[in-house]
């Protein structure tokens, strides 16, 4: 049983899993970020089931993959029908459903429980996904390339000022705090995440606290919305323009509309570069 329950921390013994009846790996992935990474490393053919949030990452030919649930609940009947060799989940270790563990023992599939709290976890996850899908070298290449690109960005911005950035991710004033991948991304982009002064995770603040954080750059997350137009006169920025902070006075308020930015993947350098360009505009 213990061997079937692996945290995605680069376990060296993890190898390409094959279905009980032979053939290639059959992966059921319930973690959108993991699905996106499987697609990015070219392992999409290994996928036999996904979560309801994953179809947007899938190519046209794979749009009809069966949906087995989400991070909160699984359709066990469908899971069994899919005869997976690996099931990828993301949950706290004690919260892994006993039923899933029992099923894994009966049906002989592995459970890969991924952890995504920082970029180190992300690289470990990609490498683990590479191994279980038979794309280890593709994963290694993607990770090495991403790390190199991040080093290039760091080099490019190392001598520049590190402006104070607040990244608001929802209209209810939820911001990016410390100890998150987005916090790391802001720092890699050459900014100082002022939101980390409030707390870790994604704290909710008031407009008054936002003023007191005194950001030089204000990023407003609007995933999947149309890109910012007309500079600062985009009507979606109207409410933010009331803030008396350097970001508004110097017109450094930007909408972040990239739908994938909140999804940790090997595309991270592209997102970090985009953030860096906004932060240092």
């Amino acid at each position: 049983m213990a061997g079937m329950l692996l945290a995605a921390c680069g376990r060296s013994e993890t190898t390409a899993s094959t279905a009980p009846g032979g053939g290639g790996p059959r992966i059921v992935c319930t973690v959108p970020a993991a699905t996106l990474n499987l697609v990015r490393i070219g392992a999409v053919d290994s996928l036999v089931g996904v979560s309801k949030f994953d179809t947007i990452f899938l190519p046209e030919a794979k749009q009809n993959l069966p949906v087995v649930g989400d991070y909160g609940s699984l359709n066990y009947e469908r899971l069994v029908e899919l005869k997976p060799s690996v099931v990828v989940i993301q949950t706290a270790e004690p919260r892994i459903p006993a039923r899933l563990k029992d099923l894994a023992a009966q049906q002989h599939f592995e459970i890969i429980n991924v952890k995504l709290e920082n970029t180190s976890d992300l690289w470990d996850m990609v490498q683990t996904l590479g191994k279980i899908s038979g794309h280890a070298s593709d994963a290694e290449t993607a990770v090495a390339g991403a790390k190199q690109e991040l080093a290039n960005i760091a080099e490019q911005y190392k001598d520049q000022k590190h402006p104070r950035v607040v990244y608001v991710i929802s209209d209810s004033l939820m911001i990016v705090g410390g100890e998150t991948i987005l916090n790391e991304m802001l720092m890699m982009a050459g900014g100082t995440n002022a939101g980390a002064e409030v707390g870790n995770g994604f704290p909710t603040i008031s407009m008054e606290t936002l003023v007191k954080l005194n950001p030089d750059v204000l990023l407003i997350g609007k995933p999947d919305e149309p890109p910012q137009r007309k500079g600062m006169s985009d009507p979606r920025l109207d409410n933010w323009m009331r803030l008396d902070v350097p970001a508004v006075r110097n017109k450094h308020v930007y909408l972040v509309t990239d739908g994938d930015i909140h999804m940790a993947s090997v595309q991270l350098p592209r997102h970090v570069r985009m953030l860096a360009e906004l932060i240092h505009k």
Binding site: P32, F53, I169, S170, D171, S172, L173, M174, F202, T204, S206, M207, G221, P223, D224, D238, N239, G259, H262
Partner: peptide
């Protein structure tokens, strides 16, 4: 709801005054 707006909807349902209304 799309994944990106779930946080907004959940936060809305909890009830708070800071709604950033125009």
């Amino acid at each position: 709801a799309p994944a990106g707006v779930k946080a907004d909807l959940i936060s809305y349902m909890m009830g708070s005054i800071e709604k950033n209304v125009t």
